[in-house]
Design a protein around this nucleic acid. Structure first.
Lengths: 238, 238
DNA sequence: CGCGTACTTGACGCTAGTCAAGAATCGTGG
DNA sequence: CCACGATTCTTGACTAGCGTCAAGTACGCG
């Protein structure tokens, strides 16, 4: 994250690392703690009436977990990747919040950002087909997941979310995600370095296919303070 | 409509009857007139980027045409059935509106109702499959289209909208609508008296299949003041 | 009585989900 | 250091749903 508005929480914070698929905030518990994401991704999920899991949104690095009032009951927050978090007592957080107008402002900003993304998801779910949603997701991912410019000018994108999570986020299946990415590779739009890493050969094509012109430029995402950090071990040797 | 809040407009009103598929309010003209629906149905439509028509909502008997600010540009209002309307000069309407708080209240009520229905449509379009949407539509239609109780206790429903309009409203095709209604007849949920008239044998089954429990009871529709009037010529002889 | 319109029905193809069987990768223990 | 198992991703086969096209059928109107 670098020194952002949350740096002031330093003395109060307790740092934690957790593996993925770890339950953070339960369905209906009022959540005794507040978590700040430093690294990795959290997912907000619930199970639909048909037993199918829906991922309703993500918490990205720099963001603070919060139950929005728009989240219907029955949703919980889990880690979607290995994460590095910062735990704050709910009460302590509320106190700092009351003292620091800058923090309150930043938090409001975040809420707005999450609502914006949620609105886009709802639209995309209704208006786009699965393959288009996947294209849009990859395009937008360059704005909120770690990227690294490659020597040839193209972009390396690190999608560390597991397949089933991406599928449930986009309302499709892991198989379809796999098929579509490989089809995109055949069309020379992307290149699959390994299951989690793609070289984006034509961001434009992704944006076009995903009808994401608008969204790409206007959707609010947290700053990628430590952009590229996920590449330390993986893409460097390329 | 019977004597509702709009009766006071009597002296200003000019009554008109129009055939169906008649353009009432053009895409971007500021609309010099306001129309009150007395009988029949108007449709708000626009053409999507792919050339496919979408019907975004209906104006039902008792309602006043208005461009909601949420209607994106490019939408127009046409008659979906033969209609009986009441035309009012925009200016005259505005003046009466300013004088009559009751009218303003009624209008606000209507806007709320239309927004509610639109929200439901958006949800249904995203969450339900075509056949489920058709079931929900038939169930809800008993709340806003002419119905008549039959001697045996079941309900006769008059759906005077043409097939393509229903299809474009529900985001499906006329063929699918036809197939689904006939399938419902085989399942003894409804009985098709003629293409526009159905006997509802199990409203419950329709509501269940359309996941419309909630919507059926809470969605706001205008009062069916003249319920049954469309049956004068058709169902009476049964 | 014939024509036009609206609805129905059948045939066909595409999309995408599900199931199941491979392939690749990683971590663990011998 | 290698082998084994567990996990994750990929791939193929199959199927349901639904849209489209086209050919029928019914009905009303001149």
């Amino acid at each position: 994250m670098g020194p952002g508005p949350f740096a002031i929480l330093g003395p109060l914070a307790r740092f934690v690392t957790l593996p993925r698929d770890h339950l953070l905030i339960d369905e209906d518990a009022p959540a005794a703690a507040v978590w700040i994401v430093r690294r990795g991704v959290l997912r907000v999920q619930r199970y639909g009436a048909d037993g199918r899991r829906q991922i309703m949104g993500l918490f990205l690095p720099g963001e603070v977990t919060e139950k929005l009032s728009t989240d219907r009951a029955g949703s919980c927050v889990e880690t979607a990747t290995a994460v590095e978090l910062c735990r704050l007592d709910r009460r302590a957080f509320a106190e700092v919040l009351a003292r620091e107008p800058g923090l309150r402002r930043a938090l409001t900003q975040q809420r707005l950002a999450r609502l914006g993304r949620m609105r886009w998801m709802i639209w995309a779910l209704g208006a786009l087909r699965p393959d288009e949603r996947i294209c849009a997701f990859l395009a937008l991912a360059t704005r909120f997941l770690p990227v690294q410019p490659l020597p040839d000018g193209t972009l390396a994108l690190s999608v560390s979310l597991p397949r089933p999570d991406i599928a449930d986020l986009l309302g499709t299946s892991a198989e379809t995600y796999s098929r579509v990415t490989h089809r995109l590779q055949d069309a020379e739009v992307i290149e699959i370095l390994d299951p989690e890493h793609f070289r984006i050969r034509s961001l434009d094509a992704l944006i076009r296919k995903g009808c994401a012109e608008q969204a790409f430029w206007t959707l609010p995402f947290p700053d990628l303070g430590g952009a590229g950090m996920a590449f330390d071990t993986v893409v460097q040797p390329v």
